[in-house]
């Protein structure tokens, strides 16, 4: 039976028990029968009075909810991922992996250098498009400006990967307040800044995914990395909280906690420490950045994942006595 949409509203304020955003419409059939229906948020921005479609029933524990599906409206457009620290290391691998999956990529990084150019080229070779955004994640104004640029370039933001991170290692007693602040500002405040700036765009699109790149160091600590460990633990608290706050708007938030990944950051660790580390873990090698990227892609695709920290660490956490 064909139903015509005669009026509709996009609800941006979630209400229990559904705690979700969606559109609500009134539809009418040829016999003049009217029904109130729900319309999935993926159609936000594309509904029009007079559209026709069908009504199906969607089972829920609260009852069978009538769902209007407009005809001839593609549910998915091209999707956009913003990857901070996306020019190099893990961020570059994630950018390229998501480009292969059809995402348009906003590569945000502090510097447009040769590595950045190579990443942009790789995204293009993967058949997608990239925009480079010069962004200092530790400064909100810079983030806001960068996010606006992405939105104006690509029209939407579906995925944010808070990957930008730095280290300034030292034993706590030798760690200057500047070393502490710098790491917290980039790794933790940066994730808050970016999450805050992209959330309105995600809500407007009807949802999104935020992935925070934490670290096993945030779970088990590490000598010489008080600032880094605190920032990565902080990302876990941020993940849990945002996952609760943003779920009603269709935004999922997940953290990953990699072990040592084969990047310049890990290779900067003194060799004896790296060797000792490998002796203590069940699979004694470094993780490839591409392996992290595959997990990120899975988190985006698997809509049941929310508010968790996924270690990707070759078994480091099970081998650790936290000492």
């Amino acid at each position: 039976m064909v139903w015509k949409l005669i009026t509709y509203t996009e609800l941006y304020t979630p209400v229990p028990p559904y705690k979700s955003i969606y559109a609500i419409g009134i539809v009418e059939n040829e016999e003049g029968v009217k029904r109130v229906v729900r319309i999935d948020r993926k159609f936000f921005g594309r509904l029009k009075t007079g559209m026709v479609g069908e009504v199906t029933e969607s089972w829920s524990v609260f009852g069978n909810i009538p769902l209007f599906i407009p005809s001839g409206v593609e549910a998915r457009e091209e999707k956009v991922a913003l990857v901070t620290g996306g020019a190099r290391g893990i961020g570059a691998a994630i950018s390229i992996e998501l480009a292969k999956s059809g995402y348009l990529i906003a590569v945000a990084d502090i510097l447009r250098d040769t590595e950045a150019e190579n990443t942009i080229k790789a995204i293009s070779n993967a058949g997608s498009k990239a925009v480079f955004v010069e962004m200092d994640v530790s400064r909100y104004e810079s983030v806001e400006e960068g996010v606006k640029k992405v939105a104006s370039e690509f029209g939407r933001i579906d995925v944010l990967v808070n990957n930008a991170g730095i280290t300034k290692d030292s034993y706590m007693q030798r760690m200057s307040p500047d070393m502490w602040d710098a790491v917290i500002r980039v790794n933790l405040t940066g994730a808050y800044n970016c999450s805050r700036a992209v959330t309105p765009y995600m809500i407007k699109n009807g949802g999104g995914v935020i992935i925070n790149v934490s670290s096993i160091v945030g779970l088990i600590g590490n000598v010489g990395q008080a600032n880094y460990a605190a920032s990565k633990s902080g990302l876990i608290g941020l993940t849990y909280t945002l996952a609760k706050e943003l779920a009603p708007y269709g935004v999922r938030v997940v953290a990953i906690a990699p072990g040592f990944v084969k990047t310049r950051m890990a290779l900067a660790v003194p060799t004896p420490i790296l060797r000792d580390y490998l002796r203590r873990i069940p699979i004694p090698r470094l993780i490839e950045p591409e392996e992290i990227a595959k997990l990120v892609r899975h988190i985006i695709e698997n809509e049941a994942l929310n508010g968790i920290v996924i270690p990707i660490d070759l078994g480091t956490t099970i081998s650790s006595l936290k000492a």
Partner: peptide, 22 residues
């Protein structure tokens, strides 16, 4: 039926407003 689809009052008035404006 409005409760079942999860329509708070603001949305019900929004349906009226959208129809009226159009």
């Amino acid at each position: 039926d409005e409760v079942l689809v999860g329509s708070p009052f603001v949305s019900l008035y929004a349906l009226i407003a959208a129809a009226y404006m159009s």
